[in-house]
Design a binder for these strands. Structure first.
Length: 271
DNA sequence: ATAATCACCTGCTCGC
DNA sequence: TGCGAGCAGGTGATTA
């Protein structure tokens, strides 16, 4: 489910309900996620005040005075604020109960998500240390992409989905940004001009920020932390539209596979 | 260092 | 209606 816009939508949905509140209880129902949930560390946390809910790349960071809890939603994860009496579902793996009688609940059918305990200096954790720049930072520009891509031969779509190059784009938004910048996803990253990388960087920023504004893309059952669906799916030009007419030229959209991910594009508009 | 492949897990859709 | 195949928003680990 979640690329950067969905994670950011989730952050904005849950933060107002729990920031500044005190964590009173931790309930781990399923410790087998991507890595074992560090239950002992989590149980030592209460009572602890949640200082803030931050996002870095597709990770959410719950910053308590004593340390930081890292959450990742994997492919199918979601976080919601629920009332105490809310019925528990089959894939509700973690509850964090706060002193205002609200619970932050992690649901993740495929269990590719993660819950980790980061002690002090969380940003030095291996999962965070090597991440590339945030797409909305000043550091992320066309010339940055151009410089990092010299001598790289892999397809540009895989290049921009690499979180060490730039964080936040996944299969949906990488596909959309490449459409908007007129670049074919299969093109080797090192064989794209500076001008076209400037267009691509702009398209990545624009696509992600538009999606955040719309509350993310709802496929299947994604809802943000406030329970509302995302509306960005109405703006998708290529993702999930194989064989349908290109919104720009009307020719049928093509599909190929890159890194075992479906990649949809217009062979006329994207070169 | 780079690129390609595998692995993790459940649920849903499709074709037969 | 049942059943296996294939696919799904991610990414670390392993292999050349």
């Amino acid at each position: 489910m979640p690329e950067l816009p969905e994670v950011e939508t989730t952050r904005r949905g849950i933060a107002p309900h729990i920031e500044g509140r005190s964590l009173v209880r931790v309930l781990v129902r399923q410790p087998q996620l991507r890595w074992p949930v560090p239950e002992a560390d989590l149980q030592q946390l209460p009572p602890a005040r949640l200082v803030s809910v931050q996002r870095r790349a597709k990770y959410l960071l719950l910053e308590f005075g004593k340390g930081t809890v890292l959450l990742h939603l994997g492919m199918s994860g979601s976080l919601r604020i629920v009332e105490q009496q809310e019925a528990v579902g089959r894939h509700d793996h973690l509850d964090l109960l706060f002193d205002n009688d609200l619970t932050l609940r992690l649901t993740d059918p495929r269990r590719f998500g993660a819950v980790l305990w980061l002690g002090a200096s969380p940003r030095e954790h291996p999962l965070l240390a090597k991440l590339g720049p945030e797409p909305f930072s000043d550091e992320f520009t066309g010339s940055y992409l151009y410089d990092r891509s010299r001598s790289r031969k892999l397809p540009v779509k895989q290049f921009i989905m690499d979180q060490q190059i730039v964080t936040g784009a996944g299969n949906i938004y990488a596909s959309e940004a490449l459409f908007h910048s007129g670049i074919r996803p299969t093109r080797p990253a090192g064989r794209i001009s500076l001008l076209r990388y400037q267009r691509l960087a702009d398209a990545i920023k624009e696509t992600l920020s538009q999606a955040i504004t719309q509350g993310g893309t709802t496929l299947r059952d994604f809802v943000g932390g406030d329970g509302k669906p995302g509306y960005f799916q109405q703006q998708l030009h290529v993702y999930g539209r194989t064989g349908l007419p290109c919104n720009r030229c009307g020719r049928p959209l093509q599909e190929t596979r890159l890194g075992n991910r479906s990649s949809v594009y217009c062979s006329h508009c994207q070169r």
